[in-house]
Amino acid sequence: MLKMTHLSKVYRTEVVETYALRDFNIDVKEGEFVAVTGPSGSGKTTFLTIAGLLETFTGGEYMLDGVDVSGLNDNARSKIRNEKIGFIFQAFNLIPDLNVFDNVEVPLRYRGMKAAERKQRIMDALERVGLASRLKHYPAELSGGQQQRVAIARALAGSPRLLLADEPTGNLDTQMARGVMELLEDIHREGATIVMVTHDPELAARAQRNVHIIDGQEVDIAEEPRFQAEQAASSHG
């Protein structure tokens, strides 16, 4: 589903070049639930933004669903983001001017879907996340957990094959985090591929597979002596 080989990402500023990813390799199979962990600044978000076609990369190769994405233009990338990928962000990223219903509708409108189908999908998705009764609420009128569930509904409504989540529970308390995690597990059981970045070892442990990133490179947990220390540091920091 998602395969990166020797991928690198360099951020160039006037003074420095930062290798956010360096010779990075990952292969996520269709239907997998992968948790990505690693210390702060190690390149997790960078990996996710490249995986989600939000950013381009500097070197290497990235095949998404069998397609080499490096040759795609901006419109094609937008279309893939819209149709194949669902995003869940740490900061929820709802549009504050729009109510719950309208927020979930945004990606469907970009898909040019008919109003009746949009409505059906929006209601189904909100039903899934247990917020069907809050259609007219604005993001500011919802709790953090509810906002994140709206964001999940927005990602779900388009029936994406790949769900990318960047610390989806990072802004939530334990109880709400658990609810969100259960939701993701449900979605995974129904066949979606999920890649989730998390700092929480407990959540990471619930994924099928863990990928650990240190300094922009994927490391094998078993062979990495620093792992225990990193993990402990990041979960406290």
Binding site: G52, N82, R154
Partner: peptide, 16 residues
């Protein structure tokens, strides 16, 4: 700006 980024992230093209 952020809202625009979000729209782009969830599928808006530049033309949109």
């Amino acid at each position: 700006r952020r809202q625009i980024g979000i729209r782009r992230a969830i599928g808006a093209t530049r033309a949109n």
